[in-house]
Design a protein around this nucleic acid. Structure first.
Length: 297
DNA sequence: ATCATGACCTGTTAGC
DNA sequence: TGCTAACAGGTCATGA
């Protein structure tokens, strides 16, 4: 599920229940996800108040009183859901609102909410590619999981100039460069495919070809920087993409999947007006790339 | 250093 | 219907 827009959607869904709440107890149901949980993880959380929820790239950050912070990555299949003490799901609960699948509930945070009442925040992750870490007070930005991350594709930071300088000299395919979290942090397979389509650029072209040899921007760099920021902003506004969970009762599931131009649309006509091409699928470094061979060059 | 590939895990779906 | 293979939103370790 989770690229940057999905993680941001999770953050916004958890925020009204978690911020200001106190962790009454934490149930950790196994020793590891992709990596072992930190030492004494549940004990260190218990009793603390949650001050804020943040996000860096695809990482959710949970800031606790005293400065300790949980760093949570959802991998491919991680999700959070909220259960209120009356047994219902909270508005804003994200994903997997079906009664089955508690098998992979790996962490349960029981909280006393700020305005009173209790809630359970449950982390579920069938494939266990997700992971959690703890950052000591003042060490969040320098934590090994976050410190090497590149620029956020939100806001104005990602300009054509910056993109050109980041990609200058790179022989890797444009797609691989866009997926490199050390350069731009937060893009994944869906939004890279969509951004390349919006920019009219081929995923297989060498990354360096959007810059001059000196690392100056070209029209391609401007188009790609804009496309990346644009598709991420659109996806966040739509609440992210939900590929598998179309059953929904409380209305907070993402709907950006209905706006895909090429992702998972092999054989469909290219939606660009007047193009007339057909979406194709190729494999690059083991991952599907969806693109229009006619208008992406 | 840079780049490509396989590995990690479970669940769902397409195809025979 | 039942089995098998392919594939899935990500990252890390390895080897060329």
């Amino acid at each position: 599920m989770p690229e940057l827009p999905e993680v941001e959607t999770v953050r916004r869904g958890l925020q009204p229940v978690m911020e200001g709440a106190r962790l009454v107890s934490v149930e950790q149901n196994r020793a590891d996800l992709r990596f072992p949980f930190p030492e004494r993880f549940a004990e260190r959380l218990t009793g603390r108040r949650i001050e804020a929820l943040g996000r860096r790239a695809k990482y959710l950050t949970i800031h606790l009183e005293g400065g300790l912070a949980i760093i949570s990555h959802l991998g491919m299949s991680g999700s959070y859901r909220i259960e209120l003490d009356d047994g219902t799901h909270a508005p804003g609960a994200f994903h997997h609102d079906r009664s089955k699948n508690t098998l992979h509930d790996h962490l349960v945070m029981n909280v006393e909410r700020e305005g009173g009442g209790r809630a359970r925040i449950i982390y579920n992750d069938p494939r266990r590619f997700g992971f959690m870490a703890l950052a000591e007070p003042g060490e969040l930005d320098s934590h090994p999981m976050l410190k090497g991350l590149g620029v956020e594709p939100t806001g104005n930071a990602l300009s054509g100039e910056l993109l050109a300088s980041l990609f200058a000299g790179k022989q890797a395919p444009l797609k691989a460069a866009l997926l490199d979290q050390r350069l731009i942090a937060g893009l994944g397979n869906i939004y890279v495919c969509e951004a390349l389509w919006r920019a009219g650029l081929s995923a297989t072209r060498k990354a360096a070809t959007i810059a001059t040899p000196a690392g100056r921007k070209t029209a391609r760099a401007d188009a790609l920087a804009f496309a990346v920021r644009d598709v991420i902003a659109d996806a966040i506004a739509a609440g992210g993409s939900s590929l598998r969970d179309h059953i929904q009762t409380d209305g907070t599931l993402g709907y950006f999947q209905h706006s895909f131009s090429v992702y998972d649309r092999e054989g469909a006509p290219c939606p660009r007006p007047g193009c007339g091409g057909t979406v194709e699928r190729i494999v690059q470094s083991g991952r599907s790339t969806f693109f229009c061979p006619r208008c992406q060059t």
